[in-house]
Amino acid sequence: MELINNWPKYYKKDVVTHYCPGCGHGIVHRIIAELLEEMDLGKQAYLVCPAGCAVLAYHYFDFDVIESAHGRGTAIATGAKRAKPELFVISYQGDGDLSAIGTAETIHSANRGENISVVFINNAVYGMTGGQMAPTSILGQSTTTSPDGRNPEVDGYPLHITDVVANFPGVAYAERVTVASPAAIKKTKKAIRNAFQTQVDGLGYSIVEVLSPCPTNWKMTPVQSCKWIEEEMVKEYKPGLLTDKREERRKDRAC
């Protein structure tokens, strides 16, 4: 008998994560570890993990990892990549981190076209702090700080930050995906592979937004959570390619 799905080389052996049952982080972690192995990038990888549930990701990833203050992931990634361009730099961030407290860092690192890859986990809620409303919470979504549902008159509208940065000339690749089904997960892996390759090719900023379940704070089962993504969340955040300027950038570079 031969094992088909070998343990990823850059995932610490036999770890049990602290994530809740059905949390999307585990799936995306596995994809990152698999891609670093498949693309032979693990040896020079440098990942910035956020303040949020994924703050302990360094206990799971078996390559170099640094933690960041809330929202500052892409600033740290900028400093590291500028100082040592030979590193393969990933900023792993959640929605509160990337689209609330770190908005300025997100916008400007994207606008500068930093040659880094951002993996953006959007679960429409603050997970670690216990389910408060996020900028990405959808209208009507009930959270601990929007108990009657997100009301645009009080709380404003869901923030489409990936769509915003996708318009920037410095952003070479941006895609929105989900992890709500096996087929979607395959697409997610492909998108993150494209984002990683963008950095390898030196074409600039790449970002993949992953609509990801948070069953605990959504107060749903993991299976219901996947259905909620596919039935509700995608109405607000339509999955698909948001920009692909890789060919343009390649031509610019060639000039």
Binding site: E2, P8, R30
Partner: peptide, 16 residues
């Protein structure tokens, strides 16, 4: 391999 794709905890092994 659908099960290994969706498993967030790398808890499933498939052998051939």
């Amino acid at each position: 391999m659908m099960c290994t794709q969706v498993c967030p905890d790398l808890a499933i092994e498939v052998y051939s």
